[in-house]
Computed example of a mutant assay.
Amino acid sequence: MKISRLCWICNINIADTAEHALKKTDIVRAYGKGSYHNLGEKQPIHFKNGKQTKLQGANSDVIKNPKDLCK
Results as ranks from 00 to 15, higher is better:
I9W: 02
I9M: 05
I9C: 12
I9N: 12
C10E: 10
N11Q: 11
N13W: 03
I14Q: 15
I14P: 15
A15R: 15
A15S: 15
D16K: 13
D16S: 08
D16L: 14
D16H: 15
D16M: 15
A18Y: 07
A18I: 13
A18E: 14
A18W: 12
E19S: 13
E19L: 11
H20L: 14
A21T: 07
L22Y: 14
L22P: 05
K23A: 15
K23Y: 01
K24H: 13
T25G: 01
D26Y: 09
I27M: 06
V28D: 02
R29L: 04
R29P: 03
A30D: 14
A30H: 11
A30N: 02
Y31W: 10
Y31G: 13
G32I: 04
G34P: 06
S35I: 06
S35G: 01
S35R: 07
S35M: 04
Y36H: 02
H37R: 00
N38D: 08
N38A: 01
N38H: 06
N38I: 00
L39K: 02
L39P: 04
G40E: 03
E41Q: 14
E41D: 05
K42N: 13
K42R: 14
K42Y: 09
Q43L: 03
Q43E: 01
P44F: 00
P44R: 13
P44M: 12
I45C: 07
I45A: 14
H46L: 10
H46T: 09
H46S: 13
F47N: 13
K48R: 10
K48Q: 08
K48M: 10
N49K: 12
G50K: 13
G50E: 12
G50W: 11
K51G: 02
K51R: 04
K51D: 04
K51T: 07
K51E: 05
K51P: 00
T53K: 08
L55V: 04
L55P: 01
Q56Y: 08
G57T: 07
G57Q: 12
N59K: 12
N59V: 05
N59H: 01
S60A: 09
S60F: 12
S60L: 05
S60Q: 02
S60K: 02
